[in-house]
Amino acid sequence: MGFFDGYNIAVSGMSAQRTRINVVSANIANAKTTHTAEGGPYKKQDVVFEEVLLQENNKSNKTSEKNIVENPDLSLRGVGVKSIVEDDAQPVMRYEPSHPDANEDGYVAYPNINPVIEMVNLIEAMRSYEANVSAFSTHKSIDSKTLDIIKV
């Protein structure tokens, strides 16, 4: 494991969770949006994560390189955003005949977004982000103490 590997892993997690926070925030902000540029109500979005290879092998150490090639589980991995997908749930229909987006029967299509569930998702993403910040800070503290010990 290299000197900056712990930082790279924590940063990949922070970046992925930042994207999730932005998407969930957009869902909350558009929970009552009945008309979009594409037509129809806003569609809820979700983030799909994937494992990403941060470092294929360690080129400075031949023994380590041989072990990584033979055992790919030793490769440095992080998390990334695979895609942002739209939810295909049917909109919630409410009877509001005076609404400008009401259909001929007086019903308005609202996004199928539960603000409570979205807030829970937001809190979970924020906690995951904070955990990655804590891991980054701990790694920084360990490296700082190590450098103090060897007097570099």
Rank of each mutant, 00 (worst) to 15 (best):
G78K: 08
R20Q: 14
L74E: 10
G78F: 06
A26I: 04
T33R: 00
K82F: 00
V79A: 06
K66N: 01
N71Q: 10
K59N: 04
E51K: 05
N30F: 03
A37I: 15
G80S: 11
V52Y: 01
K32C: 01
N58Q: 11
N22C: 01
V23I: 14
L54H: 09
S60Q: 14
S25M: 12
L54R: 11
N61L: 06
A26R: 09
V85S: 12
K82Y: 02
K44E: 13
N30D: 03
K59D: 08
T34V: 12
E50V: 01
E51Q: 06
D46V: 02
N61C: 05
E38V: 15
E51S: 02
K62P: 05
R20L: 07
P72D: 11
K44W: 09
Q45N: 09
I28W: 09
H35A: 15
I84N: 10
L54C: 12
V48L: 13
F49K: 09
E50A: 03
D73P: 04
S64T: 00
V79I: 12
A26V: 03
R77H: 07
A26H: 10
L53A: 08
F49D: 07
K66T: 01
I68D: 00
T36F: 15
D73V: 06
G80Y: 07
K62D: 05
V52A: 04
K66H: 01
L53G: 05
A31D: 04
R20S: 13
N67I: 00
N67Q: 02
V47E: 03
K59A: 07
N57M: 08
I84F: 06
G39H: 15
N61G: 09
T19A: 13
A26M: 08
L76G: 04
A29L: 07
E65M: 02
E70R: 02
S60A: 14
N22T: 02
Y42K: 10
E70N: 04
N30K: 12
L76Q: 09
V47H: 02
V69D: 06
N27W: 11
F49G: 08
V81A: 02
V24K: 08
T36Q: 15
R77V: 07
K43A: 12
V24A: 08
E56M: 00
S64N: 03
N58P: 04
G78W: 04
G40A: 15
S25R: 13
K43D: 09
N61D: 15
K59E: 05
A31C: 06
G78S: 08
S25G: 15
K44T: 10
Y42W: 11
G40H: 14
K43M: 12
P72K: 05
E50R: 09
F49V: 09
E65R: 00
Q55L: 08
G78C: 07
V85Y: 08
S64Y: 00
N71H: 10
K43C: 07
G80T: 11
R20P: 12
E50Q: 10
T19V: 15
S25H: 12
S64F: 00
P41C: 03
V69M: 04
K66M: 00
G80N: 10
S83A: 14
V85E: 14
N30M: 05
S25I: 10
I28L: 11
H35S: 15
Y42E: 05
